[in-house]
């Protein structure tokens, strides 16, 4: 039977950084967490500006893919990468609906090698939906309409992804 060696936990970093005088509590108070949250809130405007630019670029790329089918592979790679970014960042900035749409778009494009007309149309609907969420600053999960939209996207991904 193979044997495993247990190596004691390295303690040097803990010895250097953990103390009872200086720094943030190991169990932070709501006030401490609010201070950290302030760092996120401070960059929220940068997020909105950056994502508006990304969505504009995606719209341009989709128009290009509509006009010139030979560009679709390249556009697909771009859409997949940006969808991953939206999925990862939206919720942190209190746009969880944006993360959900990004997740759906990433799932849709993750399995594709190229895009036919229907798939391209579904990609476009996702980008349009992201635009609406950002333009209307829909924070939280949105309402019934937004949830219906997510269900519709899920079905489209299952069928065409």
């Amino acid at each position: 039977m193979p044997k495993a060696q247990i190596i004691p936990a390295p303690m040097e970093l803990k010895r250097r950084a953990v103390n009872r005088k200086k720094g943030f509590d190991i169990n932070p108070s709501p006030t401490d967490l609010a201070k950290i949250e302030a760092a996120v809130n401070a960059s929220a405007d940068k997020f909105v500006t950056a994502f508006a630019a990304i969505l504009r670029a995606l719209r341009g790329a989709i128009e290009l893919a509509e006009r010139d089918p030979t560009m679709r592979d390249m556009v697909l790679v771009e859409v997949r990468e940006r969808a991953f970014d939206v999925k990862g960042l939206g919720g942190t900035y209190k746009f969880p609906l944006m993360s959900e749409i990004g997740r759906s778009l990433h799932m849709l494009t993750g399995r594709m090698e190229t895009m036919n007309d229907v798939q391209l149309a579904i990609v476009k609907y996702h980008v349009d939906a992201l635009y609406v969420v950002l333009a209307q600053r829909i924070q939280g999960q949105g309402g019934a309409l937004e949830q219906e939209l997510l269900v519709a996207f899920r079905k489209a991904v299952e069928k065409f992804g």
Binding site: A17, R20, K21, K22, G23, I26, N27
Partner: peptide
Amino acid sequence: AEKIDFSAV
């Protein structure tokens, strides 16, 4: 309470 001095990390 124990604290973490992040300036040391």
